[in-house]
Simulated scan of single mutants.
Amino acid sequence: MDEIKNAVELLLKARRVSALTGAGMSAESGIQTFRDKDGIWTKMDPMKWATREGYLENPRLVWEWYEARRNQVKNSKPNDGHRAMAEFEKIFGHFSVATQNIDGFHKLSGSKNVHELHGNIFRNKCFDENKILEELDESTIPPRCPHCGALARPDVVWFGEVLPQEVWEAAFDDAKNSDVYMVVGTSGTVYPAAGLAAIAKKNDAKVVIINPEDSEIDLLADVLIKGKSGEVLPEILRGLQAGK
């Protein structure tokens, strides 16, 4: 595929490379997406399941839904796309991943420089004080913060909440300073994450977009590859290894 060859040629010239990944990447591991035509939010009201207000209205039901999501992730595993990205860290002087996914698959695959923009479903925090909770007494559902007694909640970014500042700033800086910026498996509709490619482009990075479907940010692409990340990224990796 000429587009893959073009992507490899751009990447071989790069020293600093960063990537933004979205739900489409983990969909190839069997994790249901949120915004596709058959995604979760087409069947469920996100205001009831992914907001502070929705949680307070029915905390037990929402907690149990997230427990079901955790179990789905536990029964899945990273795919070849995740593993290829972990290998990119060994090739470039700098490589980082900013991910909208909350499944932790990038770190599980061996990636070390990961910015989890929307949190991690396996972490919990205090609803009132926002502090990460390492241990919980789950004899009550949902559990309570052992320090102040407030509800515990998943450490994920809900609708109406801002991204974690340090994580966002690191992802922003990486986009701003990239030679090549990769966008993989995202619809390009969820901001501010979707704006990272434009930030990279504004600062003279080449943008490579990999997605089986059209996205809202395709016009930013210097190279646009229509395909699954689990197939395309390993091909790019092989091209880089041969070219190096």
Results as ranks from 00 to 15, higher is better:
155 D>V: 05
117 L>S: 03
127 F>S: 01
111 S>H: 07
107 K>E: 14
140 T>L: 12
117 L>R: 04
154 P>V: 02
159 F>L: 15
157 V>N: 01
125 K>L: 14
134 E>F: 12
101 N>E: 06
160 G>A: 09
128 D>E: 15
94 H>R: 13
135 E>I: 10
111 S>F: 07
140 T>C: 04
133 L>W: 09
156 V>T: 09
98 A>F: 07
113 N>K: 15
158 W>C: 07
124 N>E: 06
155 D>G: 01
113 N>E: 11
103 D>L: 13
152 A>L: 08
129 E>L: 07
115 H>Y: 15
153 R>K: 15
161 E>N: 06
104 G>Q: 03
153 R>Q: 12
93 G>W: 08
163 L>V: 07
144 R>T: 11
104 G>S: 06
102 I>M: 14
142 P>G: 01
104 G>I: 07
139 S>P: 02
155 D>I: 11
112 K>T: 15
92 F>I: 14
102 I>S: 07
140 T>A: 07
130 N>C: 05
134 E>T: 13
92 F>P: 14
99 T>L: 04
98 A>T: 09
136 L>K: 11
160 G>W: 08
114 V>H: 02
96 S>L: 11
135 E>H: 13
153 R>S: 04
105 F>N: 04
148 C>L: 06
97 V>D: 01
162 V>W: 06
111 S>M: 11
141 I>C: 06
148 C>M: 04
108 L>W: 08
124 N>C: 15
138 E>G: 00
145 C>M: 04
137 D>S: 11
130 N>G: 03
117 L>G: 02
138 E>P: 07
154 P>F: 00
133 L>C: 08
146 P>W: 00
107 K>L: 10
141 I>N: 08
133 L>N: 01
128 D>C: 02
156 V>E: 00
136 L>Q: 08
116 E>T: 12
143 P>E: 02
99 T>P: 06
118 H>D: 01
150 A>D: 08
148 C>E: 01
138 E>T: 14
154 P>T: 07
158 W>I: 11
105 F>K: 00
101 N>P: 09
124 N>Q: 13
161 E>M: 06
111 S>Y: 09
100 Q>H: 06
99 T>K: 07
132 I>E: 10
148 C>D: 14
92 F>T: 12
161 E>P: 11
121 I>P: 09
109 S>I: 09
132 I>K: 10
155 D>R: 03
150 A>W: 04
105 F>I: 10
93 G>R: 14
129 E>V: 04
140 T>E: 15
106 H>K: 13
112 K>H: 13
143 P>I: 06
118 H>C: 02
145 C>N: 02
124 N>S: 15
158 W>D: 07
154 P>C: 04
121 I>N: 05
146 P>M: 00
139 S>L: 06
121 I>W: 00
92 F>Y: 11
136 L>Y: 05
129 E>F: 09
98 A>C: 10
120 N>F: 10
93 G>M: 09
161 E>G: 06
146 P>F: 00
132 I>P: 04
134 E>Q: 13
158 W>F: 15
145 C>S: 02
92 F>N: 10
162 V>C: 00
95 F>R: 12
141 I>F: 08
127 F>E: 02
100 Q>C: 08
150 A>I: 10
93 G>K: 15
141 I>S: 13
107 K>D: 05
137 D>L: 10
119 G>T: 09
122 F>R: 07
93 G>N: 15
